[in-house]
């Protein structure tokens, strides 16, 4: 492994976490796909933040507002200068999503624990079912720069029209349009299959090893720069179905490869595939507008 990650401090090892379990400046946060997993056992002292019920607004399709984010951090014992380390199941899908959401509110020091829940458990590290009750901390959102990391549909349309780089991180069947919505579950579906014209297919999982850790900087470069020809100077948009898998790729591009301009389109396919009159490409070719 010759190359190193562009922002190596954003990724911490399980060893690092174990050494900082009692560090008052560090808060460990578990965010999972499975809502019961945290309660089966978690890293001692880790709090749970649910991606859906806690980070998202339950009425409008959006994230919680600033006062609610402040209350959430306060209750979790997170202060403005706390180092927040996220981990979770599914090779840190939701951990990356939670980190991205924390960045929407401008939280400074956010990190991912490499390998997530599965590796911590597989290595037989300490776990507990005890739910911590942190002392509430003062928290005030300082400077949030949502526009730098979040893309909305009109911006994505302009981006596609300009032929700028886009990554579709869903499975190949979703990309080609073979898979539509699930029969009988319209609340999860899109009315059209395919991808945003110009988007290249790089399923999110290609950025990880079998044990859920991230691939090396060289391997990631070979993937995103060698295979699909992106450059660090590119203005990149990543998307998936609801923006969680693309948070993972967003983290890789932004922190591990150090691309300064990467945005996550959280509307993703559940928005694009339902929008009236937007262009869609079918099949394996990226296509163009």
């Amino acid at each position: 492994m010759s190359g190193t990650y562009a922002r190596p401090e954003a990724l911490v090892s399980a060893d690092w976490v174990q050494e900082h379990l009692n560090d008052p400046k560090v808060r460990i946060v578990e965010t999972d796909e499975d809502a019961a997993l945290y309660h089966m056992g978690h890293i001692p002292g880790a709090v749970e933040i649910g991606w859906h019920l806690q980070l998202q607004d339950q009425l409008r399709r959006d994230y919680i507002d600033v006062p609610r984010f402040e209350a959430l951090c306060s209750a979790a014992g997170i202060a403005n200068d706390t180092t927040v380390v996220f981990y979770g199941d599914n090779a840190n899908w939701w951990a990356c999503y939670a980190l991205w959401a924390f960045q929407l509110f401008g939280h400074k020091d956010c990190r991912i624990m490499d390998g997530g829940y599965a590796l911590w458990k597989a290595e037989g590290r300490p776990m507990t079912t005890e739910i911590p009750s942190p002392t509430p901390t003062p928290y005030k959102v300082q400077k949030a720069d949502e526009a730098a990391i979040r893309a909305f549909r009109d911006e994505v349309l302009a981006h596609a029209k300009a032929g700028r780089p886009m990554i579709d991180v869903r499975s190949p069947d979703e990309y080609t349009g073979k898979k539509l919505h699930m029969e009988g579950y319209p609340q999860e579906g899109a009315l059209r299959g395919g991808h945003i014209p110009g988007a290249r297919s790089v399923p999110w999982k290609r950025a990880i090893n079998a044990d859920g850790t991230f691939k090396s900087a060289d391997e990631l470069q070979a993937l995103y720069e060698g295979e699909i020809g992106m450059k660090p100077s590119d203005d990149v948009v990543a998307y998936c179905r609801i923006g969680e898998r693309s948070s993972h790729t967003w983290f890789v591009l932004k922190y591990l490869l150090g691309y300064p301009k990467v945005r996550n389109y959280d509307g993703s396919w559940t928005e694009w595939g339902n929008l009236v009159r937007v262009p869609i490409a079918l099949g394996e070719e990226p296509g163009k507008i």
Partner: peptide, 15 residues
């Protein structure tokens, strides 16, 4: 427990 979004898989099990 799950929120409305993620009950799809459970409907799948039942179906």
């Amino acid at each position: 427990i799950l929120g409305m979004l993620r009950v799809r898989g459970l409907h799948g099990v039942l179906g």
